[in-house]
Computed example of a mutant assay.
Amino acid sequence: MKKKILLFALLGGFMLSTTACSSDDSNSGTEQVEVPNTLKDDYFNIEGATFNAGSIESGTAEAIAEINVNNFIINGGKAIMTVSSTAQLQSIHIGLKGHDGYYDVKTSNENLTRNGLYSYEVILDFSQDLILDIVGLELVGYITDGTRTILYFRELQVIPAGTGELQISLSWDREDDVDLHLVKRNVDRIYYGSRQLHNADGEKIAELDIDSNPACRIDGIKNENIYFDRLEDGVYSIYVDLYSKCEVSGSAGSKYIVNVMYNGTSIRLSDHMIGKFDDTDPGSGNNESRHVLIGSFSVVNGSFSSVVEEEATTRTLDTFGLSKKMIYTK
């Protein structure tokens, strides 16, 4: 199988940075002065957004119909927030209740929903050092006619997750059973049926410490997490599987996002780290041929070395020389 190896030194080019400025006016043409981002390191970041000092200014319009985001988050994880509005928005301001500063998110990814609402997606990136029990988000929409919405609030409960040298996390937005799999090529895998990875000496090197909605026993957490105590040489591949669609027939398919953190830095493995299962997909029941390949990477001399670019987005167990006996039914 043909592969291309992308050197780890180039990974910085994958990262999306957050600009900081002091202006709180979305339409301001004045010179912007860089200010420290007081939310990124300890709380959360928003990729591609601008960080502003000060407090969010609200208005009187009640235009936002729904804010859909996972009620549970993990440190080091990401979450997809979908904001639906009756009016067209030019930007969304998002801050943390009780803290100075907020993010100005330009609405470049607008969609119209089936019921005629404007829909916008925002990616929330939570710090590995997040120590809050509850993250209280504040949100205001800037409407294209120059008016602002009222101030909206969402509270997200934090589930502590292991981080280690390498952290791989999965979050999704509906009450379905979605699973995170990590395969060490020709050796072993971590998933709900085998939650730890050991080296040749029998020592644990990695663990799946959060597993959610198993066999549609709904817990509402909708996050899964794998962390490494230390890295072992080899080639690893990350998969996501819709084991079962637990919601009623006709409901939308789950949107999901995967995050990979190496020594505190988010790594982009491929263009498949954000996705959505088809609305009509009932789930695979752990059918390996329907697992979604998120991306692959290699570890050399105990360090994250490179991203391995695969030619296809799905692989079977046979591709990695793994026995069919590893298929575990919930």
Rank of each mutant, 00 (worst) to 15 (best):
residue 51 F to C: 08
residue 53 A to R: 07
residue 54 G to S: 10
residue 54 G to A: 11
residue 55 S to R: 06
residue 56 I to L: 05
residue 56 I to H: 05
residue 57 E to H: 13
residue 57 E to T: 11
residue 57 E to M: 10
residue 57 E to G: 05
residue 57 E to D: 05
residue 58 S to F: 07
residue 58 S to V: 01
residue 60 T to P: 01
residue 60 T to W: 12
residue 61 A to K: 14
residue 62 E to Q: 15
residue 65 A to M: 14
residue 66 E to F: 09
residue 66 E to A: 14
residue 67 I to G: 00
residue 67 I to N: 03
residue 69 V to Y: 05
residue 70 N to F: 10
residue 71 N to G: 07
residue 72 F to G: 00
residue 73 I to Q: 02
residue 74 I to G: 03
residue 74 I to D: 03
residue 75 N to M: 09
residue 75 N to Q: 11
residue 77 G to N: 06
residue 77 G to S: 15
residue 77 G to F: 08
residue 78 K to N: 09
residue 79 A to M: 08
residue 79 A to K: 05
residue 79 A to D: 10
residue 80 I to E: 01
residue 82 T to E: 12
residue 83 V to R: 04
residue 83 V to K: 01
residue 84 S to N: 12
residue 85 S to D: 07
residue 86 T to I: 07
residue 88 Q to Y: 05
residue 89 L to K: 04
residue 92 I to H: 00
residue 93 H to D: 15
residue 93 H to W: 12
residue 93 H to Q: 14
residue 95 G to E: 03
residue 96 L to T: 12
residue 96 L to S: 07
residue 98 G to L: 08
residue 99 H to A: 09
residue 100 D to Y: 09
residue 104 D to I: 01
residue 105 V to C: 01
residue 107 T to D: 04
residue 107 T to W: 00
residue 112 L to W: 02
residue 113 T to W: 11
residue 116 G to A: 05
residue 116 G to M: 13
residue 118 Y to I: 02
residue 118 Y to P: 02
residue 119 S to T: 00
residue 119 S to A: 06
residue 120 Y to S: 07
residue 121 E to T: 11
residue 123 I to P: 00
residue 124 L to A: 05
residue 125 D to V: 09
residue 125 D to W: 11
residue 126 F to T: 02
residue 126 F to W: 02
residue 127 S to G: 11
residue 127 S to F: 13
residue 129 D to Y: 08
residue 129 D to L: 07
residue 129 D to C: 00
residue 129 D to P: 05
residue 130 L to W: 04
residue 133 D to Y: 12
residue 133 D to T: 15
residue 134 I to R: 15
residue 134 I to H: 15
residue 134 I to E: 15
residue 135 V to A: 09
residue 135 V to D: 10
residue 138 E to I: 09
residue 139 L to N: 06
residue 141 G to D: 00
residue 142 Y to E: 12
residue 142 Y to Q: 12
residue 142 Y to D: 09
residue 143 I to T: 03
residue 143 I to A: 02
residue 144 T to Q: 12
residue 144 T to D: 09
residue 145 D to G: 05
residue 145 D to Q: 07
residue 146 G to K: 03
residue 146 G to L: 02
residue 146 G to S: 08
residue 147 T to R: 13
residue 148 R to H: 11
residue 151 L to R: 11
residue 151 L to P: 01
residue 153 F to D: 14
residue 154 R to A: 14
residue 155 E to F: 06
residue 156 L to Y: 06
residue 156 L to V: 08
residue 158 V to Q: 05
residue 163 T to R: 14
residue 165 E to A: 05
residue 165 E to I: 10
residue 166 L to D: 02
residue 169 S to Y: 04
residue 169 S to F: 04
residue 171 S to W: 08
residue 171 S to P: 06
residue 171 S to D: 14
residue 173 D to M: 07
residue 174 R to V: 09
residue 175 E to T: 03
